[in-house]
Design a protein around this nucleic acid. Structure first.
Lengths: 252, 252
DNA sequence: GTTTCAACTTGATCGACGTCAAACAAGGCT
DNA sequence: AGCCTTGTTTGACGTCGATCAAGTTGAAAC
């Protein structure tokens, strides 16, 4: 059943209790018996491929989704083909939280590379969280965390200039990859320059120029989607910075 | 006890079940016995005055707060006195949701005018929501709604130009005031131009110029904080618009 | 190999909006 | 009343980053 050379995606269909994401994902902090109860409602479908949609804006809301492997982008499509990228999601992150209120997805989610996704039927989840206080607590925390993340993004878009935005994006990727056991200073970006720019409220050209600039300043080494962070400290200071007055447009 | 000419704030200390916000606020959709249980944990302090803080960034998180009367702004303070306004909150809206995860407030909240605030100790709330499934459901919805609102704000800051931003802000105020039984076309703004600009990622001067422009175009009639909307339809189309290509900076 | 196509890079130009500056209006205080 | 502080408006000017345009690179197809 399991082959040696090619890791079958079937083997990835492990239960929550064996999943390496248990400390990042919903089961975080749950008693093992409760993890099993949660596990029993999770659906694991076969892997999706680059460009596949998990859901589309306007669809009826049934389930939350968790990235198990790979990566996902969420975006708000608009008439005329334009879109606003809302986020890039790594393993352990939950998608679809914004749909609970309206009972309808307001954004779309598509995978950026071959990805395994766990589906959590929300109604059953809600019933379960009524019985398991620590699961309810965990869910409150997750929703709150999402709000806090959006808040940080508002600050980025409202106050930071182009350089600070890209630096903040790279630092964020670095930190999140690190939490998942990957190198914080050597990684591959699964999204295009265009998608990065869209996400950060910048034109593609600006993103490209900044990558070049960072490379010239020996902060990064970039080869297409492969990024090596040479000077994480400088990158972090660029990201956090209220840059020196006079260097930016927004200061109010 | 109750005087005739001046409405004492003491008289506003009504229970949830008698509160006019019941259809907008947490009790929405709860059985009346459950509303009373919720009511029993709510603390109602005396009114706060312009500039008073409800909480400050960095403080330990204990309670959620609901605006009962008046209005509140939340903002992320930064070193050097700079700040990013994160939102303006009207009666029935909940504040502090972003603090649940970190158990610590990440932003500050101060009242913009004399306001009554309900305090909901979160730990007691959480216990209660374990017992009352419909309360849990309502809380999930509220958290989700907050995420959806933030998402819309990301779109505004990421894609819209100055005119679209101010129009969207005014339409949003109009809609929210209308839901609270106030006129959608004649209202007073409790925040300054500076705060509006900060919130929308614009300079004060830009906001001021846009108010003047909207007035010249007979879309608004503005007298300081008093706004009359003369042409709500046009305002809405300005707000929603992917404006015609070539008229804006961000199009990606 | 050649072709094709999309993604990316680089340069030149331009405009929306920020910054600077100054005048003006409105409360609040003595 | 007069004074002071703060918020708002208006104009002149500068700049960051968008837009336009052209070239480069790499991957996939044949």
């Amino acid at each position: 059943m399991a082959q040696r050379k090619v890791i079958s995606f079937e083997t990835i269909r492990v239960a929550c209790k064996n999943c390496s994401l248990a400390t990042l994902c919903l089961p975080m902090g749950l008693a093992s018996e409760d993890v099993e109860r949660l596990d029993s409602i999770v659906k694991r479908s076969r892997p999706l491929h680059r460009g596949d949609h998990i859901f589309r804006g306007g669809e009826h809301f049934r389930s939350l989704y968790v990235v198990k492997t790979g990566s996902v982008k969420t975006y708000a499509p608009s008439e005329e083909g334009g879109e606003q990228v809302l986020g890039f999601h790594l393993p352990g992150e939950i998608i679809g939280l914004d749909a609970i209120d309206k009972d309808c997805h307001t954004c779309s989610a598509k995978v950026l590379e071959t990805s395994a996704i766990c589906e959590i039927p929300f109604q059953r989840f809600e019933e379960l969280s009524t019985c398991i206080p620590s699961l309810q607590h965990q869910m409150y925390r997750l929703l709150s965390k999402e709000i806090a993340a959006d808040t940080e993004m508002l600050l980025l878009l409202g106050k930071k200039n182009a350089e600070e935005r890209l630096a903040a994006f790279l630092v964020s990727m670095s930190k999140r990859l690190s939490k998942r056991g990957l190198s914080p200073v050597d990684f591959y970006l699964s999204m295009s320059r265009h998608e990065i720019g869209n996400y950060l409220g910048l034109a593609v050209e600006t993103v490209s120029r900044l990558f070049t600039r960072f490379q010239d300043e020996h902060i990064l080494k970039v080869d297409r989607k492969h990024v090596e962070v040479l000077d994480l400290l400088t990158l972090e200071s660029l990201a956090g910075a209220q840059s020196t007055p006079g260097h930016r447009q927004h200061s109010s």
